[in-house]
Amino acid sequence: MNRKQRDFYRWLKNVGSKVRDPPASGNRPSYLGSVKSSSDSAALKPFPANDKFVSQPVLSEEARERIWKSVMVTGLPLKAVSAQYGVDMRRVAAVIRLKAIENEWEASHKPMALPYAKAVLSMVPVADLRQSDQPFEAINDIPVHKYTQQQLFVPTSESRHFTRADAAKAFGEHILPPDEKMRIPELIQFERDIAEGVKPQEAQDNFVTAAARSEDELAAKESARVERDEARKLRIESGRFEFRFEKINVDSSGKDGRSRRGVGWRYGVPFNDRRRAVVKIPTKVE
């Protein structure tokens, strides 16, 4: 054994043993950050050299159950549940999707990875989403547009009331102001109501109504789209196959005949779907 190996085994015996096994009781993450320094901020850093990465809490079993109940049993709109617990809307939807599979497995007695789940949730920091807890994550994140990353000098008059919407326009004609990019814009109205002295309960009710309405509108729009698509198709059931006929426009292949919206094989245009060295990994699964 050389010196480096000796050092390694000595470290593993003395220090490494602290992170070898999960804590005997309760939930206590043990990362390398806590081995290196005893400060609170280092406790959740798995990479000692990277202080910009933190192991953030995940939803506990209890929290998932709570989210599932408020959507599927209480029937609250997703936006309201998201605002109530401070959980991103996409995460709320994912929790419900996963829970549906879990329930299906439970009903059909399919074996689940229970000891694994228990062990993992004892190792990572978890959030229970109790009433008094901090919001789980930011629910109104706005993606930074590339056009807004440059510094801009816009000459205006001193007296001009230059707002967010004006700033967005200055960056580009198509750049939307943050008010229109909010995932839950109904929350702005809710805060405005609160600032104007509307009773909290009333403001909350208004918010839930507005959220439910916007979700209904979205659902109606989606079902209308599906209906429209269906109306264009003619389905003929032949026992073994279902034939679907759809009207095609020849011009959709474009001027050069190579547009991706064109349908079918076109004379003189190579069809590469069986060529070697062409990436054939699917880009989406539906």
Binding site: N140, V144, M182
Partner: peptide, 11 residues
């Protein structure tokens, strides 16, 4: 991303 607080946006 940037977290825009609805409270700030409202006032």
């Amino acid at each position: 991303v940037v977290d825009m607080k609805p409270q700030y946006m409202a006032t």
